[in-house]
Every structure is written in C-alpha cells, then in structure tokens.
Design a protein around this nucleic acid. Sequence first.
DNA 1: TCTATCTCCTACTAAATTAGTATGTATTTA
DNA 2: TAAATACATACTAATTTAGTAGGAGATAGA
Lengths: 128, 128
Amino acid sequence: MKFSTKAEYGLKAMTNLAQSFPEQKNLKTISQEEKISAKYLERLIGSLRKNNLVESSKGKSGGYVLSRDPGKIKVGEIIEVLEGPIAPMKCVRKFCSLEHQCASSKVWTRLAEQIKRTLDSINLSELI
Amino acid sequence: MKFSTKAEYGLKAMTNLAQSFPEQKNLKTISQEEKISAKYLERLIGSLRKNNLVESSKGKSGGYVLSRDPGKIKVGEIIEVLEGPIAPMKCVRKFCSLEHQCASSKVWTRLAEQIKRTLDSINLSELI
DNA sequence: TCTATCTCCTACTAAATTAGTATGTATTTA
DNA sequence: TAAATACATACTAATTTAGTAGGAGATAGA
C-alpha cells in the first residue's frame, strides 16, 4: 500500500510554497530546493493550479503562490488532487462486483474514511 | 492511493475460510465462490501459508484451514503479508532522502500509524 | 521592440508493477 | 495405480509510473 511520488512531490512543493507564503516562487527554484525533476513537477503543479490550490503568474518573474493561507489548505485536498479520490479498493470507488455487498468491503470503506479523516486533520501551516 | 487486488483477493479468501472454520476447504472451491483466478489465488494463499495464517494438507481431499481462530487473526496481518509493510511512502520504509527530516514526512508516518491501527482493529470474526 | 525568462501544453518513452497464465512436480486418498 | 490436490517457478500482456522532448504563449526589463 503506497502513494506514488505524485503525492510526495506535490506535498513537498506545497510546503515549500507555504514557507515563502505570501511571496511567489518560481518552479525552477522549488524543483531545485526539493530535488524534483522540473518538467515532472511542472505537470503536477499544473493540476494543483487547475484545482485552485495555487495561483500562477506567467512571463519573466512569474511564479506560483498558494491561493489561500497555509492554515486553510488541508493535506487531504492536495493528495486527492494528485492521486485521485482516496479509495483503497475498487468497491469503494464504484460498487462491489458481487451482487450482495461482500464482507470485506466493510474494511475498505472504513479504512477510506479513516485515511481521509487523518489527512484532512493536517493543514500546511502545521508542517512548517 | 490504493491497495492491489492481492489484498482484496487475500482478504476475501480469508473471510471465506473463516466462514467454514474449522472445516478445511480446497482452493478450487474458494476461487469459484469468490470468483478469483485459481492459479493466481494459489500464489497468494502460498504466502499466507508461509506466514502462518493458514495451514494446508496436500493430496486428494487436501485443502486449507485458518491456522488460528478467526477472532485471533487481524485484518492488518493479512494485508501486510500480501502487500508488504504498511508504509505509504518511501521515507517511512527507509529514511528520508534529504539529510534533515523533511516536513512532509510527518504526514506519512502519522498516516501509516493510523492505517495500521485501523486494520489491526478488525479481525476476521467481525467480518462474517 | 526585442530577448530572456518564465508558465503552459501535448505527445512520447523507459522502467516497474500488476495480474495473471503455463507448465510442471510432489503428495495423498480411494 | 489413478485422480485430485497442494506447491513451485518461469513467462507474459496490460497498465501505471516517472519521467523526457519539444515546443507555444506571456511578460518584465534592457
């Protein structure tokens, strides 16, 4: 059971931005400080922007800023944007393949709730 | 963030065995009832056996039984055998690539603890 | 106005993982 | 001795991950 590097890199970038908030910062700087491939991070931060977690300004001296106060951004939001909905198993995302709810699906839904609760209980300002 | 079908199939097989406990049951029957590829399940149940969660008897009229009472087998044990240690990110499994502990690693360790606690709080007898 | 520096966009790719299949061997009961 | 079972290992197709390549578009400063 693991998250991919998308969650890892994205969270690192967001805490990095949280540290310099409300100053903006460009992608190259973030990628160097956090040792993440710039081109890859570019795509990740793109989804964060589309989901209104960061704002960008283009052109020379452009860069990124958190779109809200770090205390108002939950870690769970970041993870869900990058990794998709928190659902450890298919039957949580859609429906169980068996007609009757299978016994073990109880485990996955309970776990999903707990993971979400945990991640939503942490915000960016707690990490800096 | 998701578990693979290993966890899904393994847990289904184990709850199936829990239902007929302490009777033994052969693999073909389990795979048909749970709609899991027999050959694939064979490998999964092999690891469960090596980790002392089930016992087997060979030969005609052979099969599998839970090695303990269903109430004494935690779901967390099953998952860890099949999916490896519950560690949502590398830095939880080994050590952070940065010299100093990075801020976000706090998230992953806290999450790992919570997942483990949740899965260990459920045992097989609660699922039948 | 031009140019360097940034964000933004899409397509491609190598490596790893997943979810099996194939092909047997070994063991036991009837 | 035959049938049914567990046990073992190697192979494979599909999917996902973690990037790379190559630009287009925007903007500040010279």
